[in-house]
Amino acid sequence: MRQVTGLIVLLVVIAFLVSGMLLFIHPFGYPPSDMDDYIIENAQEETGSNNVVTSVVFDYRGFDTLGEATILFAAVTGVLLLLRTVKRREESS
């Protein structure tokens, strides 16, 4: 009985989320927001970079790039921790 109730609640929540996503999602590319226009007009003056995408990635949204680099660092650390098989010298025991 509890499982059936939980399943019904889960389905209602999922239906709510999906319907909200379908009904209230921002139309793709319309209307262009103020931030787009601001970045396109002012990025070259403010950051001096001709490549506006790079100026967004490293300057306007630099904090997100820091998170990306942290994820990469964590992935490399995890792989090296799991897969590295170091031959250890025989310790004097």
């Binding site: 007009e41 070259q44 003056e45 950051t47 001096g48 100026s55 490293f58 630099g62």
Partner: peptide, 22 residues
């Protein structure tokens, strides 16, 4: 250096700390 606004060939000495970050 600050490039002219709009399309252009570009200059290697622009971009502030973006080249160093790259």
């Amino acid at each position: 250096r600050i490039p002219a606004t709009g399309p252009g060939p570009g200059d290697i000495w622009t971009g502030g700390f973006i080249p160093l970050m790259n």
